[in-house]
Design a protein around this nucleic acid. Structure first.
Lengths: 234, 234
DNA sequence: CGGGTAATTGACCCGGGTCAACAGCAGTGG
DNA sequence: CCACTGCTGTTGACCCGGGTCAATTACCCG
């Protein structure tokens, strides 16, 4: 439904362009349809930290109602297609279909849980564990929206992106990724990631899937059902 | 209102005891009335990371509705007094007073924003900036609920707590705190923190208050109004 | 006074950062 | 078709912020 109602306001942006910048009123909720984006913050001297990755089916900042000033920015990683759903439109929709509002809230809670895991990543996991964890997480999330095929999934992130997300240097990311590849934990080729043995990578990452809350009640309302593929058949 | 309706289920716990543990159903929302607590996660090998500090007026995990399994634990730091508000009670309340539900949602969003700033802290700020930032943040939050007096606020955190929260070692926390004290940025004595020159500390921390969203609309419904002091007068 | 927690200190080490160069490759314009 | 440009990945040499280990010194409280 989200998709259908917003059919009039599909937007596209080029890779590496910002969608919204810190400080402005988001004005609308954005539903990623195709491509990857990220949430990030930076310090006045240029240091930059990625806070989250968005994949198709994700909502950027569904809190338009309450926070009128972005406390971070959102940028496209790949070529990106997203639906922009204005505040009024959103109100009308959630009033008509209360379960949508619940689904959105659920989405926010899972995002917050992922953010917490990221804090654990940065504070306690070392570079190898951290990068392995990030790849496992993305693989699970992509699989949940049907974007994996077998042990393979799209992986448009550069080593620089990985550095921004982990707080490491891209030089060190490079070394660690070489290690992980030499250990046969991952294979990356042409922006595709293959995980030959997921269980082994998860072990190396100290991965515990609980925080993704993939087992929730009301799964029919989650990100999956917001994807165009599902929407077009309804 | 939150306070009054929950008058029947005030609980107290000793310092350093857990309130809820990862994996269990929270069953209720908890409103901190007195003392400090923290949210934390740990890895199987014992590494531990604090994800957030709770001060009076904060809600722990207001998402009882949707997530039935804690993905982290909550522990008391000091002697703690909190109100436990059951799911049914909560439903009744939010149905009667929709603005409470909004206030809770707002609270969640601010918590998420703080979590994001913590990711920035861990990824980009160095030890000095990080610790300075943490103290500035806590000072602002305490002031927002009327728990500061002048340049002073309660500060029950041990250097070990600071280490858990920043991902540093307590040895290094010790050294950095000595530096900050020698630089006249903070004074700590008898579990009290004094900030002689807030602006200077903020500068050292690269602090930007925007993420705390202290300027929101509907301030009358925020944490402040949930404190017993205010409730008793209504 | 005794036991436990919290703070402090010193010597030494290592994960990851810095700097600088270079290689591979895609896109672009001539 | 090729030279040029720019981004991404890779590598080496060296450095430093923060970690590790192990004492020692306040405190605090019964």
């Amino acid at each position: 439904m989200l998709g259908r109602m917003s059919r009039g306001t599909i937007r596209e942006v080029l890779p590496r362009r910002d969608i919204i910048h810190e400080g402005v009123d988001p004005g609308a909720v954005r539903l990623i349809l195709e491509g990857w984006a990220c949430r990030y913050k930076s310090l006045p001297d240029g240091r930059r930290q990625t806070l989250a990755f968005f994949i198709p089916g994700d909502l950027c900042d569904p809190h338009v109602y309450l926070l009128r000033k972005m406390d971070h920015s959102i940028g496209a990683i790949t070529h990106l297609k997203y639906a922009e759903i204005g505040r009024a439109q959103m109100d009308a929709m959630t009033e008509r279909y209360p379960r949508i509002s619940q689904a959105i809230h659920w989405n926010e809670l899972v995002s917050a849980s992922i953010q917490r895991e990221w804090i654990l990543n940065m504070g306690q996991r070392n570079a190898h564990e951290h990068l392995a964890h990030l790849m496992v997480e993305l693989f699970h999330r992509l699989r949940a929206v049907g974007l994996t095929s077998g042990a393979t999934c799209p992986f448009p992130l550069t080593q620089n992106d990985l550095a921004d997300a982990t707080g490491l240097t891209c030089v060190h990311v490079n070394r660690v990724m070489l290690d992980l590849r030499h250990d046969g934990l991952v294979e990356i080729d042409h922006r595709e990631l293959r995980i030959p043995d997921l269980a082994r990578l998860e072990k190396a990452a100290l991965f515990n899937p609980a925080y993704l809350h993939l087992d929730h009640e009301g799964a029919e309302l989650d990100e999956r059902s917001m994807l165009p593929a599902n929407l077009s058949t309804s």
